[in-house]
Amino acid sequence: MNTPVLEAKHLGIAFGGLKAVDDFNITINEGELVGLIGPNGAGKTTVFNLLTGVYQPTEGAFFLNGDKMNGKKMHEVVRAGIARTFQNIRLFKSMTVLENVMVAFEMNYKYKLADAFFRAPRYWKDEEEIKEKAIDLLRIFNLESKADYIANNLPYGQQRKLEIARALATGMKLLLLDEPAAGMNPTETAELLSCINVIRERFGIAILLIEHDMSLVMKICERIVVIDYGVTIARGLPKEIAENPKVIAAYLGADDEMDVEDDTKEGA
């Protein structure tokens, strides 16, 4: 059996007495697209922060292609092959679109400090090579014509795309997308959808997706994991998830919660 791209075993983190994520297990194979959903505050982004080294897990471990990733700092995790985008877009706002992508190619530059100071031939060779690679990457996202724009001046949808392009430039094996469709209109969402499909075809990478847009999740995810209050409450194919009573309860409120509401009304 192939080693999965990502394997998380009993992953958990506690902030003081609060267990934000508890016993989180997931396996993602090469080229797979898995959705991670749950109501607000369920701990989805915390899972992402655990998987990218922002937080260190207090329990369990996670493995990338079989290598243990615990204890690594954020940039080390990225270098190992897990890249992410953020819920609230984080671009290098004052830099151009092209530079945003070029920064993320950092690991591919071979030239040293002295080469940079004195503009040695290696500097020119590397810079030119990376620039071409970056433009090629922008072309996939139809951002090539905007390469000279300051990133902050792009429309929202394109900023999202640029963030994904930048993540791709790190050359990762697993991409974590944190609510990529948030704040997008239906046209932009459709564009994003085709974009994700293109990435999967071209790069064959594994993707873990957090998303609130259920239609998007149901359309593209092969498997879905649902968490609520940091605990995994369901996992399976989109169809199964849509019909799972626990999931429906988590999203729409369970019976016992309604009882509580009734109680307070009576009290008033």
Binding site: A83, R84, K93, R166, A167
Partner: peptide
């Protein structure tokens, strides 16, 4: 510009 995004880009 953004140090979190910078480390998320592998820096």
């Amino acid at each position: 510009n953004d140090d979190i995004a910078a480390s998320a880009s592998g820096l």
